[in-house]
Write a protein that binds this DNA or RNA. Structure first.
Length: 272
DNA sequence: TCCCAGGCTCTCT
DNA sequence: AGAGAGCATGGG
């Protein structure tokens, strides 16, 4: 994987275990879309990015060397060696899923955005999740180049359930408000959850009304860098039964969350 | 029309 | 501590 910078773009040549399609469309982020074949555009924090993948190259448009090292390298988890993670897998079926989804990287998303997004995701389908999040950003987010940033917890905490009616998020609105209030007030300090043990961080997240184990694990994995978190949703539960007879010891391992994404992607793409 | 969606809370055993 | 209903809304 070779990286260079030219014309204010960032180029990644021969990327290792990095498919932007697999990474951006495997259900961990909701604000990316494929605008033309191989070209994706979306938002992260207060930034907009257009990114393209060709045969042997990934181009991050309008991303300087400083932008890349200050933000995108971490966002796409590019310092981590996914090749070695996959190589160390011994379970044959898990290895099959891993090789199928080897281009997936676990995004390091903004913790508040991740929390809010996965609260919205509960008992919901992906197209509608995206719709609600879009309305959330359009109505309450800062206008930035290309669209709207994700609204801050402070902004949401100052709203009422009536204000959130435009989202058409149903029963989830009260959960969003509780999360925003706990985060904005400092009762829950999301950034502090990055460095404490996974179990302790999960306990904190579970204090939020409307956050259960599944949502907490998604926040731990996609927003807080706890790669041992293993969210169990309906897809995963079904896949664990179909592929592994219901039990998989690797769900307790250091990179369980990475395996989880491989299994999720494999199950979804192959309609297991 | 009907079933169900990357679940959670509440209630009842 | 485990099971089941109810929840808002709309995609397929």
């Amino acid at each position: 994987m070779n990286i260079y910078f030219e014309n204010n773009n960032t180029y990644i040549v021969s990327p290792d275990c990095f498919s932007i399609a697999a990474t951006l469309d495997c259900g961990q982020a909701f604000r990316w879309e494929e605008i033309e074949s191989g070209v994706w555009a979306g938002f992260a924090n207060d930034k907009y990015l257009k990114i393209e993948q060709t045969d042997n190259k990934i181009i991050l448009y309008d991303v300087s060397e400083k932008d890349f090292y200050d933000f995108w390298e971490n966002y796409f988890d590019l310092k981590r060696d996914y090749t070695s993670i996959i190589q160390k897998i011994e379970n044959e079926k898990l290895k099959t899923a891993a090789l199928f989804g080897k281009g997936i990287r676990i995004l390091r998303q903004d913790p508040w955005e991740t929390l809010c997004s996965f609260i919205i995701s509960q008992n919901n389908n992906i197209p509608r999740i995206k719709g609600i999040i879009n309305r959330l950003c359009e109505n309450f987010g800062e206008k930035i180049f290309g669209g709207y940033a994700f609204p801050t917890a402070e902004k949401i905490a100052a709203l009422t359930a009536d204000d959130l009616a435009v989202l058409r998020s149903g029963f989830r609105a009260k959960y969003i408000l509780d999360a925003a209030k706990k985060v904005a007030s400092g009762e829950i300090d999301l950034s502090s959850l990055i460095t404490i043990p996974t179990e302790k961080a999960r306990e904190e997240l579970l204090k939020i009304y409307g956050v259960g184990n599944k949502v907490a694990d998604c926040v731990l994995l996609f927003g807080l860098g706890h790669l041992n978190a293993f969210p169990k949703d309906v897809w995963i539960k079904r896949a664990l039964i179909e592929m592994f007879g219901g039990e998989l010891a690797e769900t307790e391992s250091k990179f369980a969350g990475v395996y989880q994404q491989y299994i999720f992607y494999y199950a979804r793409e192959n309609k297991i």
